[in-house]
């Protein structure tokens, strides 16, 4: 599917989003709509990692940083300015800028693989530590105290640009979230099908070869990372709207793990997969939380282990292959190969 100029997924997304916006508010009460809204918001977040990891080959262990920055930027902007249009823009610009700075540092330093994972993980921890320790009254941006571990409460709802009094109702926030999800999906799909997207995928497949063909891998990775960061920030903005508050928990390691689990379960290298993975896992988490019998960590951990071992490509690619009537490709028994991949790499370096 990668790189094919095939537009049916876009049409499907438009139809699905429009019907959801029209039909669901008619069937469900406000509380259920609010529940559905969070699925859409988190799916946007899932898409952002699906893009930079599945297509850009950049596995960030700290993707929640951009989500959290988006939420905080929106909160601070909205309370300070009153009118939320600038805050909405800030929630994408600030994570995007931070992604640009971090990405420049990473990609122009030629940092990859585990080392990239270590640094992104470290950045999350720094943000979590710093945000948690801002409880004093001296930590404030404009009129907004950062609130340390308690976070920022009573964040104003988004208003229609230019009409500060027209704030979004629950139904309108739902419609906006679903529309955002569809637009982000379509935007990413078009981007992946563009020349830029093809080069990004080519770099993921074989960075050396792409560079020998004259493409600056660093630049393309950086742009990919910034786009992913800005989308995650947008999700953070919607999240702050949804809950009306934000706390350092958005920067927590667990939040970053969640996003990775969604993408792994749904299928790395697809866009629809992570959305499905996100909805599935969130639905499961909610159902289990209401049951209150089984520990949530136990289930999440079990799912992650089983998926990596049994469905290494994730749900959507596996189902797609089964639907086409082919069995999943059998992997060579990794144990007999030993550490082939790792040892050839170190030989090449020596």
């Amino acid at each position: 599917m990668i790189g094919s100029r095939n537009y049916w997924p876009i049409a499907a997304a438009v139809i699905a989003a429009l019907s959801a916006i029209v039909v669901l508010p008619a069937i469900y009460d406000e509380y259920s709509l609010l529940q559905l809204t969070i699925y859409a918001i988190l799916s946007v977040l899932a898409l952002s990692l699906a893009f930079i990891w599945g297509y850009g080959g950049i596995l960030s262990f700290g993707h929640a940083v951009f989500f959290g920055l988006g939420a905080y930027s929106y909160a601070i902007g909205a309370i300070n300015f009153g009118e939320t249009t600038i805050a909405l823009l800030l929630s994408m610009v600030i994570p995007g800028l931070f992604a640009a700075a971090l990405g420049y540092f990473l990609f122009y330093g030629r940092i990859s693989d585990v080392y990239l994972g270590a640094i992104t993980l470290t950045v999350t921890l720094i943000f979590f530590n710093l945000a948690s320790s801002t409880s004093g009254p001296e930590y404030r941006v404009g009129r907004v105290p950062l609130g340390g571990f308690n976070g920022i409460p009573s964040i104003p709802q988004l208003n229609v640009p230019g009409f500060p009094d027209w704030t979004l109702s629950t139904t309108e926030l739902f419609a906006l979230s679903v529309a955002t999800l569809a637009l982000v999906y379509i935007g990413l799909r078009l981007l992946i099908n563009s020349d830029f997207g093809r080069i990004v995928v080519a770099i993921k497949e074989n960075e050396v070869r792409a560079e020998l063909l004259g493409y600056d891998a660093r630049k393309y990775k950086l742009v990919t990372f910034v786009i992913g960061g800005a989308i995650a920030g947008l999700a953070g903005c919607l999240f702050a709207n949804w809950g009306g508050f934000t706390s350092p928990a958005v920067f927590a390691l667990g939040q970053s793990v969640q996003i990775i689990i969604w993408v792994v379960v749904g299928g790395v290298g697809t866009l629809a997969g992570p959305v499905i993975g996100c909805v599935l896992i969130q639905w499961l988490t909610n159902s289990l939380a209401s049951l209150n019998t089984v520990n949530n960590n136990l289930i999440m951990g079990g799912i992650l282990v089983v998926v990596v071992l049994m469905l290494p490509q994730g749900l959507v690619p596996t189902i797609a292959r089964l639907a086409r009537g082919r069995r999943p490709v059998q992997r060579l028994d990794a144990a007999t190969k030993g550490l082939g991949g790792a040892s050839t790499k170190s030989e090449a370096r020596a």
Binding site: L59, D113, V114, G117, V257, I260, I261, V264, N295, N296, N297, L298, I299, M300, G301, G302, I303, L304, V305, V306, V307, V308, L309, P312, A334, A335, K337, G338, L339, G340, G341, A342
Partner: peptide, 25 residues
């Protein structure tokens, strides 16, 4: 089962980490 697949190993052991936290709880 995951030798030579660095990222998959990290993900699986991350899952194990959650699993053990759940078990201990």
């Amino acid at each position: 089962r995951l030798y030579g697949r660095v990222i998959d190993t990290m993900l699986a052991t991350w899952g194990l980490s959650l699993l053990f936290i759940g078990l201990a709880t």
